[in-house]
Nucleic acid binder design. Structure first.
Length: 353
DNA sequence: TATACGTGGCC
DNA sequence: TGGCCAAGTAT
């Protein structure tokens, strides 16, 4: 019997007509002429896209490449500048590893990224997915690329009912078996585009899918139910206190958070510990008063409610923690989202319109 | 294998 | 409002 499974060439034909126009992609004409995309731009985009939507990453990619056009430029940047530029994009370990990786590539590898999966995977912030994606997209290596899109597409095409993460191995094997020797970079992006635009988590558009015929989950009527996933744990709620102090000259009391842990390396307002009943820990002696509001924020694994205390302090006050930043050196956009929420609430109390 | 690690949009 | 979800990695 003829093999009726999914055909990579049909997906490539679909990709040639429907590929999304993204700032890190090479255009169809350049691709047809055999041009490869800049590995630096491929790497940067893949790091930004880890667990992140295209819509969220797009403007950050433009800003980074405009400001740091090459890996050498990025490697030479100040840590604080890069962390500030990453602010709002989340998963800040990515930004710390981005810099580490740039400095290894610029400093030890002559500015060139490794071309093999193994070489790439040895770099900070590059795991199995990203190594495969860079090898495939930048160097056209027939690497197996398995992200959330690929898992979903494979689970549906082959009707894999085993839930994730147990099914990861099987889905990876299925993805490897389909990866073509011809145009593997375009193929990798094609599966991801399919997953992002047609084979979506909810309400997949099976009617216009280039793989609708071979798709077993569609013929069984269970496409939208796959992949199954292990149930999530409930998020606990933690509480804390954030301290917003404004000095008489308009400077704000901020601190750079420790390298490791939540929001590591980012600028933020001093806070208490976060738990069931936080211990007050004001960063400077002052007449603290409650702002009467809470900043609410949800992280990956817990909800947080930060009650906000504000104070106005005179010139010459010495903080126990943090540093005063004059207004011309403080941009709220440099803060992670939680801290931006705290600022908006604290400022409206200290500086009512 | 399990957990830590952000954020914004959607329903 | 609240849970789910998105081009994962490090430990």
């Amino acid at each position: 019997m003829r093999d009726a499974g999914a055909d990579p060439s049909e997906l490539l034909a679909w990709y040639d007509r429907h590929a999304r126009d993204l700032p890190w992609r090479t255009g169809p004409a350049a691709r047809a002429a055999g041009e490869r995309p800049d590995p630096y731009r491929v790497w940067l985009s893949e790091i930004m896209l880890q667990q992140t939507t295209v819509a969220a990453a797009r403007d950050y990619f433009r800003a980074f490449t405009e400001r740091w056009p090459s890996v050498e430029d990025l490697a030479a940047a100040e840590d604080a500048e890069v962390m500030a530029a990453w602010a709002g994009l989340g998963y800040y370990a990515r930004a710390r590893n981005l810099l580490k990786c740039a400095r290894v590539v610029a400093g030890e590898l002559g500015g060139r990224f490794p071309e093999t999966v193994e070489g790439l995977k040895a770099l900070p912030g590059i795991g199995p997915y990203t190594a495969g994606a860079i090898a495939a997209i930048a160097y056209d290596e027939p690497a197996t690329v398995v992200d959330g899109n690929v898992e979903r597409v494979m689970a549906r095409v082959h009707s894999v009912g085993l839930p994730l993460p147990q099914a990861k191995g099987e889905l990876t094997a299925l993805a490897a078996a389909l990866t073509p020797e011809h145009r593997p970079g375009d193929y990798a992006q094609a599966v991801m585009d399919l997953g992002a635009t047609i084979c979506t988590p909810r309400s997949p558009a099976c009617g216009i899918c280039p793989w609708r015929e071979p798709c077993r989950a569609r013929s069984e009527g269970i496409a939208a139910d796959l992949p199954r996933k292990a149930p999530k744990k409930a998020k606990p709620t933690r509480h804390g206190i954030a301290y917003v102090a404004r000095r008489a000259d308009g400077a704000w009391l901020l601190e750079t958070r420790p390298e490791s842990g939540l929001l590591g390396g980012m600028l933020g307002w001093p806070t208490s510990d976060w738990g069931d009943s936080p211990t007050p820990a004001p960063p400077i002696e002052a007449d603290w008063r409650s702002a009467g509001v809470e900043a609410r924020h949800t992280f990956t694994h817990f909800h947080l409610r930060l009650s906000i205390e504000v104070a106005e302090v005179p010139l010459g006050s010495e903080p126990e923690r943090g540093d005063f930043l004059p207004p011309d050196r403080f941009r709220p956009a440099d803060l992670p989202t939680l801290m931006r929420k705290v600022f908006d609430l604290g400022r409206s109390v200290l500086l009512p319109d």
